[in-house]
């Protein structure tokens, strides 16, 4: 009986080890290799033009889902990614792009997105789409968003993903930057992904 119990325990342990190997090794943030699909989207950019993944290939892309009225999570995330790209310094000698996808198309027009992203970094491009298109895109990356009921002034809160999804130059999902990851760790992984490592 003891032997059987230890076999069952060993089985669970093997499963645990297999799962901890998921996502790729050597990342200082969260590796997501093989856990999420590659980059694919069709949105309206801040210039009002259609933008797809084809416009961004050839360099790593960082995707973030947010909204410009966001009081804390979005500005913090944008400031952190701007700091991380700065910290990555010369090791990031590429056209790395940050795509800020607004999940609040009701309030975030392309022009408003343009003004918002200009504030953070030249690398940041804003984009949005209809709620249905955004729903399909966020679902692809296992993310979601939702809206609170508007208050007397018509303001409402939006729940959204707080992560940054990092794709390499080929569009493969590589790393996930969580709010708990340090700027130093983000910079190190950006350097690694930009170098093709």
């Amino acid at each position: 009986m003891k032997r059987r119990e230890s076999k069952a325990f060993a089985g669970l342990l093997v499963l645990a080890l297999l799962l901890t190997a998921c996502g790729g090794r050597g990342y200082q943030t969260k590796g997501i290799e093989g856990l999420l699909p590659d980059l694919e989207f069709r949105l309206t950019s801040e210039t009002g033009q259609v933008i797809t993944e084809a416009d961004l290939t050839g360099a790593p892309v960082v995707v973030f889902f947010g909204f410009t009225n966001c009081p804390d999570v979005c500005p913090t995330a944008m400031a952190r990614i701007a700091a991380a790209t700065d910290a990555a310094g010369e090791g990031l000698d590429t056209d790395l792009q940050v795509l800020f996808v607004s999940v609040d198309p009701g309030r975030d027009s392309p022009a408003r997105l343009g003004r918002y992203t200009d504030f953070f970094s030249d690398r940041v491009t804003g984009a949005t789409a209809s709620v249905e298109t955004l729903r399909a895109m966020t679902k692809r990356y296992r993310a979601t968003f939702g809206y609170d009921a508007p208050n007397e002034f018509g303001d409402y809160n939006v729940s959204h993903s707080s992560a940054m999804y990092v794709f390499d130059a080929e569009g493969d999902a590589r790393a996930l930057f969580r709010p708990s990851d340090s700027v130093t760790a983000m910079a190190a992984d950006l350097r690694r992904i930009a170098a093709g490592g």
Binding site: Y147, D148, S161, S162
Partner: peptide, 13 residues
């Protein structure tokens, strides 16, 4: 369980 913050929740809670 940080994943629910990372991926977003179904509604603000």
């Amino acid at each position: 369980f940080e994943i629910y913050d990372v991926c977003g929740r179904a509604f603000p809670i």
